[in-house]
């Protein structure tokens, strides 16, 4: 009974959401009054909407949505802590594979200087790759390769 109730209530949602989008569009008008689909329309609601946003009402979740939530958490885990760990490993491993240059310090300095860019790139990539498994594989491979390099170096 509870599952049926969820399905019935969720079936109302598309029409509800459409009304919200219509409200959102009203805030993205050009100075001449022409309505344009803007960022607001792409967010499933207005990014800077001022009116009541019906999407904010709590709705029971379908199994598919629960799977989506798990996927979102997995993506957050990859983009946040795992990307940070991978960036740290690449930075530390960089001391071993970045050419030291004539001054013999590039391998010590460049990984530290580029670390913020490295983490940001991994973060954005983890957020944007539609295939989450591929993102895990690539970031994981980068982390594992550098981790192995570090392990071999420290063992020796």
């Amino acid at each position: 009974m509870r599952r049926t109730g969820r399905i019935i209530r969720m079936s109302d949602q598309p029409a509800h959401a459409e009304s919200v989008r219509a409200e959102a569009r009203s805030f993205t008008r050009e100075p001449n009054g022409a309505a344009v689909p803007d960022l607001a329309d792409q967010d499933g609601g207005a990014f800077f909407c001022t009116q009541q946003n019906a999407m904010t009402h709590r709705q029971p979740k379908l199994p598919a949505q629960q799977g989506g939530r798990l996927r979102a958490w997995m993506r957050g885990l990859l983009a946040g802590p795992l990307a940070l760990v991978a960036a740290c490993l690449i930075m530390a491993g960089g001391a071993l594979w970045v050419p030291p240059g004539a001054a013999q310090i590039n391998n010590l300095v460049l990984p530290i200087v580029l670390f913020p860019l490295l983490w940001s790139a991994l973060f954005l990539y983890a957020c944007l790759d539609r295939k989450l498994g591929r993102a895990y594989a690539i970031i994981g491979a980068l982390a594992v390769v550098n981790g192995l390099l570090l392990s071999l170096h420290l063992i020796r």
């Binding site: 930075m91 530290i112 913020p116 570090l150 420290l154």
Partner: peptide, 23 residues
Amino acid sequence: LAFTGSFFSFATSVGLPALAMVK
């Protein structure tokens, strides 16, 4: 500002200790 600020924060708290450990 964000890039340089991150560098200053992470260089001493994470970067230098990590590279000192490796090298």
